[in-house]
Simulated scan of single mutants.
Amino acid sequence: MKLIEYPNEILSRIISFLDTPSPFDDEILQKPKSALTPFESEAGIELTTIKASALKNLTLTCRFLRALTLPVLFKHAVLHPLLLSDFLSFLKSHDLSQHVVSVVAHVPGHYNHVHPAWWARLLNEVPATRLSIIAAPEVFAELARISLWSSDAWAFDMAFQILQLDQSPEAARMRIDYDDLPNFLVARPWQNMVVNEGSSLLAYTTYEFFLRRTPSLLTALHLNSSGPGDALFANLLSFDFVAIFPFYNHVDEVLKCVRKMRRLRRLFVKLCPEPESTWFRDEIEAAGGALDIHDPWNECETSWTLIAHSVVFLTTAHGQLCELQMDDVKVEAMRPTLEQGIGSLLKERWCYEDPASGIWRRRRVEQGSPGQG
């Protein structure tokens, strides 16, 4: 019996075994890098994994299998704003728009002069539940319509940062009015947010590094008392913050934003590099070794204490936080210090899930009103 003679349900099931999560999500905890290379492929969509290559090969066999495979093949897309029209035309011609689950947009420049805004067109025509943007800090400030405190940006040399936002399937079908364009931050009722600010390590090589202000969307939202930013924070259920070796005073500014997330259920924080990565050594070599290697780790320790205090703040009648995950426990040398420091402040209201897990959960009696525990 030939493959194409099997019922559609069986063929779809076979094809589903080649389905994979977005490769971008697998690397979102790494130092942000350029995503421009994918735009050399058809419609600006990246196909990198072995399974993705197998799916692409399957689409070349016959029209019947191509029709069954395309919705899986283009489930996760990468695009350049200047190629948006071609991207949307490609999806429309193959009836794929409703199958796109996530979109990664690399924004290498300023495109707010284009009307309607590229992000509004994308959100209106592609009901993806996840939008990730890779851009320079000043581009995010432009999207949010705020001023960025970037006079020290040269010291950090952060070419790229990442902002990832999730919405519900119902919200993904809401229409945006091009003639009354909302602020990007509140264009949809975003529920989950991931911010990856990259590495601050190079700034440690400058004189009085602790006086430098990190180029950051979150800092700008805090310092500008942004109304749309506050509205975004108030709606979030989950927040992930990744910033390798940030200064503790910058973490404090970020935590002031976190304290506005009163509906927040889950908080994820990563401040250290991956144990197996080499870029820590690479950046020190690139900087000529002109820094005290103890400084970044000291900043981390202070930041962990500040995080624990903010968790305690949200463990009140006004907060709904019930899970804290500290990814830095993967750094074995720092794990005892982190676990002891966090645990001593959370005390009896929280319990540590498992040894070396990095996950603290709020005790059930603390999650509801009296009598619900």
Rank of each mutant, 00 (worst) to 15 (best):
L148T: 06
H106Q: 04
E301C: 07
R145Q: 14
A52Y: 07
A52V: 03
L3V: 15
W154P: 00
F209G: 06
I134A: 00
A144V: 12
L96A: 13
H294T: 13
Y248I: 02
L68G: 07
T129I: 15
S303M: 11
N112C: 10
T205P: 09
Y204L: 12
T61A: 13
L221F: 02
V103E: 01
D180H: 13
S102H: 05
C62F: 05
Q98V: 12
T49G: 08
A287W: 08
P228M: 09
R212Y: 09
F313C: 10
V72D: 03
A35L: 11
T49C: 07
L58Q: 07
P7D: 10
S357H: 08
H309P: 00
S16E: 14
L29Q: 01
G44R: 06
N8E: 15
R145P: 00
K56R: 15
V194N: 01
V139R: 02
E285K: 06
L73Y: 08
D166W: 15
L264Q: 05
N298E: 15
C351E: 14
K2H: 14
E142K: 01
G227R: 13
E299I: 05
Y178W: 12
L185W: 05
P23R: 04
M261R: 02
R63T: 10
T129A: 07
T205S: 15
P23K: 04
D292A: 11
E283S: 05
L70M: 15
W190G: 04
L91N: 09
A153Q: 11
I45N: 12
K270C: 06
S357C: 08
L346I: 10
C351R: 10
L148K: 06
A52K: 08
S303Q: 12
L58S: 04
P23G: 10
F74G: 06
D240T: 14
Q367H: 01
S85A: 13
Q98K: 12
T129G: 04
P81S: 06
R262W: 03
W360F: 14
P296K: 14
Y207Q: 11
A308L: 13
S369T: 11
L68P: 07
C300P: 06
P246W: 00
Q164F: 02
P127V: 11
L221P: 05
A231G: 08
G229F: 04
E285F: 05
N196K: 00
D177T: 08
R361L: 14
D25I: 02
L271M: 13
A286F: 12
H80I: 00
M193W: 01
P273Q: 02
T129Q: 13
T61K: 03
Q325R: 10
V195C: 04
P127G: 11
R121Q: 15
Q340D: 13
P246S: 03
I4W: 10
T315L: 09
K56H: 14
